[in-house]
Write a protein that binds this DNA or RNA. Structure first.
Lengths: 139, 139
DNA sequence: TCCTACATTGGACTCAATCCAAGTCAATTT
DNA sequence: AAATTGACTTGGATTGAGTCCAATGTAGGA
């Protein structure tokens, strides 16, 4: 069931009720919750969990590489448990909805040496922006 | 001289000392200043200019399409006057330095229809991340 | 020159996130 | 099973970036 939880346990992560609940809340595909949304859902299962703990826990999952931090706009960061398969994001500019996408092509290979300015380039992030069908209907 | 200033004037933009100074501060290539940095430099020329005005003015230049807002991390937004030529960004994860880059390839064409989820996709942003030579030396 | 619609100001406010010192607890040790 | 202890949690204060707003100033047209 809890894929993420299993992965975390497998890393010898110290388990607490709070951490378990946060991990459970993050299960699923196309899940991109903000810290506040995670907190709201966590509170349903564990009423006394604090915001600080949610922030701490999410931050650690990110450090462990089991969750990806997605910052597509100036609003709150979103947390994506889909860390096992490389992917990019498609974002609705109106409501902020996010979908995981897997474009063809290899943008890393598209950056010529003479445009690297001596940087050690380690990562590329591609963000597609547009309007989701839902917002388009409510234009 | 001031390319940006000319473009803005040409659009019938009401000119004030504050707006002129902000436009002047933004001249150049690979310029990616934060609002606060723009304010600091503007104050040197016009001591009484306020932060609010810098924010307002930058915001308007962005609406006019003459300046691009670059938000590559959770730190302050940066403002890029290079709005005439499409480009992407290479960012140093350590110090936040930014370079404009022009990768080959067309990421827009790389997103298959069945991965668009009904969105009207209007834009793609590619962000390369790494470490700049300067930070690499000071490892 | 006068007028007025638009621009500027600075201080209060918001929102997301981080910090911190005190209290709590999971897991190891005895 | 109890003691131990270093890691985890808490909530309130704080930070940082940015926005808002009512009062004041001014560019540019008549």
């Amino acid at each position: 069931m809890s894929d993420l939880l299993e992965r975390l346990r497998g890393r010898g992560w110290r388990m607490t009720a709070q951490r378990r609940v946060v991990a459970e809340v993050l299960e699923g595909d196309h899940v991109h919750l903000t810290a506040d949304e995670v907190h709201a859902r966590a509170v349903e299962r564990l009423p006394e969990i604090s915001r600080a703990t949610v922030y701490n826990t999410l931050g650690e999952m990110v450090s462990l590489g089991e969750v990806i931090e997605v910052s597509t706009d100036r609003r709150a960061k979103r947390y994506d448990p889909n860390a096992h398969r490389p992917h990019h994001h498609l974002v609705c500019g109106r409501c902020g909805a996010i979908r995981d996408v897997h474009p063809s092509g290899n943008p890393m290979a598209d950056l010529p040496d003479d445009e690297r300015f001596g940087f050690t380039v380690s990562d590329v992030e591609v963000t597609y922006r547009g309007i989701c069908p839902n917002c388009a209907a409510t234009a």
